[in-house]
Design a protein around this nucleic acid. Sequence first.
DNA 1: TTCATACTTCGATCGTAACCGAAGCATCGC
DNA 2: GCGATGCTTCGGTTACGATCGAAGTATGAA
Lengths: 228, 228
Amino acid sequence: MKEGPDIAQIGALIGDPARANMLAALTGGRALTATELAGVGGITVQTASTHLAKLEAGGLLAQRKQGRHRYFTLADEAVARLIESMMGFAAGRGHLRHQPGPKEPALRKARICYDHLAGDYGVRMLDSLIASGSIDAVGDGLALTEKGEGDLKRIGIDVGDLRSSRRPLCRSCLDWSERRAHLAGSLGKALLSSFLDKGWARRTAESRSILFSPEGDRQFLRLFPVEG
Amino acid sequence: MKEGPDIAQIGALIGDPARANMLAALTGGRALTATELAGVGGITVQTASTHLAKLEAGGLLAQRKQGRHRYFTLADEAVARLIESMMGFAAGRGHLRHQPGPKEPALRKARICYDHLAGDYGVRMLDSLIASGSIDAVGDGLALTEKGEGDLKRIGIDVGDLRSSRRPLCRSCLDWSERRAHLAGSLGKALLSSFLDKGWARRTAESRSILFSPEGDRQFLRLFPVEG
DNA sequence: TTCATACTTCGATCGTAACCGAAGCATCGC
DNA sequence: GCGATGCTTCGGTTACGATCGAAGTATGAA
């Protein structure tokens, strides 16, 4: 007994519904204010304030003062991965929300996961990159091929720049809605950024979902075909 | 708000200290009875019984009746990976137990993680397998090479048998004490089993730690050398 | 300065869940 | 059959933490 690190503390931090909702919202990658997070959690600002203080003390959140606002973000990508992996686990065990709600389909189609694309489109993109030989899937992991580097160059992504960062280029991230992997890492981020820059898609204000324009949809599906 | 799967439920399940202790103990891979788990959690059997019922309802545990005993185990390897990943996360944020205790060093040297070897020795073994060219590390993932298959055959592990199971052969599992990867998957299990079969090491009764005999220690270090 | 906004701290309430004693089943050994 | 062991269910207590109203602090706008 009493072996190893204390998982009960972080379990308890995530275990409160209001806090879990705030964390899930912050997995969208945006910095949110205390008031916004109170709305997300369905509680008053006073209560939210105490929750946020606890989450920060636990090392899950970081805050940045800006004028009279306080912007909260996840402390780092590790927190995002933990949340997303718990979502994947929860989805697999049938721990779903009570009402599917109208936003669910959009969320399953395409959403943001920290800073990269997730959902049906995220999984499709990785599948297509593997099928075309741009990415090698070896065991659990992913590796960019030379062909892939050329293909990406052609759509305006310079892999050389990305390699210089300390962050891994390719990472697989388990998708909770599809239960299959999508592409994370700096390359995943760069790809999503380029879609947004090109105007193919845009982020929504209150949700994690990503909305593709009709034209963007067409371009995306052309660029990442899947057989069948 | 109210997007995606409900992580609060599993967070809350893990968030209770008694339950967390039980789960951590079960990460040792052994099936434990309700009474044993009550001891681990530091609570009475009545209380433990309600906790175990909740964990089972939540899909984290499975139970098997055997005579008048009830043996509890983690529901599957996904639960073990979740627990271990939370431990890694917790260790990184300094959520450590209060007293390091005398057993900690043994635990850091070698311990069981579900069914494979973890700790310093687990990390060392994977490092050595990669350095010798038996395993390729590509991105996040691991793949056995032809050379590796031959080397393993020589120490009595038939990879062909392992491939027939549905479980992945190589998986990397993040080690909470070393903060680096060790080898999981069916190959990880087979390697640990062979060490135990050969008498190089044995499991302890109450702890997750694995004790190597002097001779086993020598053999292990010879088989998995590291430079430096 | 004065007022408004964003947020935190204080104080008190309230609900839930952890907890254990006692009683109730089930299984084993005799 | 009997008692002993392992575990669950019931009932009642207790404690912790989530919650919010009200007051307090900081920043910005007028």
